[in-house]
Nucleic acid binder design. Structure first.
Length: 122
RNA sequence: UGAGUGAACCAGAUGAUCGCAGAGGAGAGAUCCUUUGAGGAAAGUCCGAGCUCCGCAGGGCAGGAUGCUGGGUAACGCCCAGUGGAGGUAACUCUAAGGCUAGUGCCACAGAAAUAUACCGCCCUGGAAGUUUCCAGGGUAAGGCUGAAAAGGUGAGGUAAGAGCUCACCAGCAGUUAGGCGACUAACUGGCUAGGUAAACCCCAUCCGGAGCAAGGUCAAAUAGGAAAGGAGAGGCUGCCCGUCUCGCUUGACUUUCGGGUUGACCGCAUGAGGCUUUAGGCAACUAAGGUCCUAGAUAGAUGAUCAUCCACGACAGAACUCGGCUUAUCGGUUCACUCAGAUU
RNA sequence: GCCCCCAUCGUCUAGCGGCCUAGGACACCGCCCUUUCACGGCGAAGGCACCGGUUCAAAUCCGGUUGGGGGUA
C-alpha cells in the first residue's frame, strides 16, 4: 500500500478532506482521482513517549494491512490516533478503525458485501 | 538464622502462521530463498573527544571552565589509589576541599560596638561643691541583657583596677627536624592572636577559536535570465585590538566561459581510541603483545498481530554521524566478598 | 535530530542575599452605597515548579530533575 510521505500532502488532506470521528481514531479522506489510494499515519507527541507512539502506529499499520482490499482507489487517507488509543487493545482498535472507515467514502461497498459479516453488525 | 554494606551480571524463554527493513543470491519479470535486525540506560543533552566547514588559527585583552595529592586516558568536570574533614558500633559512605596573612565589598534586625575608633562601666591623681556628685588628666579592655558570630577557651596566680601580664591544659599560627614523590603526619621550639563570607567581586595555577551530519560534498531534472572564472585598483576580517603571510571573501573597468537558487537522488553512513579471550606489567584505574569475531543503518522513519506451553507473571523504556563518561527512570532475579547481632558445636 | 530560552497568586507582571509572612493591576468572594444592576469604597482568601547544597540567613547563588516555549531544511 502506498504511503503519504510529504508534510505538504498531510496538510493538503487536513485542509481539503472530510473527517470521520471514531472512538480511538480520526480519519480524513480526500479524493485524488489517481489509480491507487495512499495512507498516512499521524500519532501526536501528546500520546506519550516514543515507545507508546511506536506501538500505536504499528498497530494502525497492521490493521490497515489487513483491511487493504476494502480501500477503493483514488483517495488520500490520514489516520490520526486520539489519546484514548493508548489504552485500547488491538481488537478494540481494529473494530473502531473499521467502523470509522465505513463511515467515510473510501470504503468499498461491494467488498463489504463479499465478506458479509460487516453489514450485519452495523 | 536475622539485619546490613559493596561489586558484577540478566532484562522473559521456546514453537507455529501472517506481515516490515537492510545485505547477499536466483530469475526476463512478477516474485522466491538465505541471513541479520534497538538499550542498560538507546533518555536528559550536563561534560569531553573524533569528523566536517569557517582564511589550519601567532600574540594580548575580554569571556568561560576546572580547583587537596599522585597516577590513568585521545580527552574530560570521568576513573583509580591515597590525604584532610563529616557520618555510621562496623563493613563502608559522603565531600566545589586553593587563597579573606594581596586588595575591595557585605554582615539585615538586635546590640555600646560587626573589625575597631569611640560610649557606658572599673580604677588612680588633681580641682570644685560638701558626703556623694560634677569637671580635668591618665590607666584599662575583666563586665555591658543583643546576635549566627563580640579582640582564643577553662582554672590558678597577679594588680589601684585590669590585661597571655605569668603559669598548666586545650585550640590556633610560624619555624626546625624526621617520614612520605606529594597532599600530609609526628615530635620539638618560638612569639602570644589572626571574626565570617571567595557557591561576593577578585587573586593564583591549569585549560579553552566558532559552528555543528539539517556539518559538508557529488550528480540529475524542469524553470527563469542571469551567474561563474581570470582580473589593474580599493576595502574588510567570525567578541575586541595588534602583527604577519596568502589572495580565501566583498566591490570592481575589462576579457572569457556556463553556472547559481529550489526540488530530488547518492556519498558522508556503519571496521571502531570495537568486542571476547590468553599471557605479561601495575595495589588499582589501565597498558603492551598474541589469538579470534564482524554484530541495526532507516529518511513519514523498520520489531506488529494471533495461538500454544513453562515460570520469577514480565519494570523503565525505542538507534538517527560515532565514541568515552556523568545524571535521571527501573518490576524483579542471580553470583561473589565483607560487617554486626543471636543460637549451636 | 541539533541548538537555545523560560518558570513568582486564577491571569499579566515587580522584586540589590536580610526591610519579603513576596508588592501592584485585573479577576473571584464578603460587606457598604443604590429601589435594583453597573460604577465606587472597605476587607479577606489565593503564589516563589520540584529535590539537594553554599551561607547565620535563599524567590534570589550553585548543581540535578520536571514542565512549557522558540530557532534550524
Amino acid at each position: 500500500m502506498e504511503r503519504l510521505k510529504n508534510p505538504r500532502e498531510f496538510s493538503f488532506v487536513y485542509s481539503k478532506g472530510t473527517p470521520s470521528f471514531g472512538r480511538y481514531v480520526v480519519v480524513s479522506v480526500v479524493p485524488t482521482g489517481k489509480d491507487v489510494s495512499r495512507v498516512g499515519f499521524a500519532v501526536s507527541k501528546k500520546l506519550g513517549t516514543a515507545v507508546t507512539r511506536n506501538k500505536v502506529r504499528r498497530r494502525l499499520r497492521a490493521i490497515v494491512q489487513e483491511l487493504r482490499n476494502q480501500f477503493s482507489p483514488g483517495y488520500d487517507v490520514v489516520v490520526g490516533a486520539k489519546r484514548s488509543a493508548v489504552g485500547a487493545s488491538f481488537a478494540e482498535l481494529h473494530e473502531d478503525l473499521r467502523c470509522t472507515l465505513r463511515k467515510s467514502r473510501v470504503w468499498r461497498k461491494e467488498a463489504a458485501d463479499l465478506t458479509g459479516s460487516g453489514e450485519e453488525h452495523a
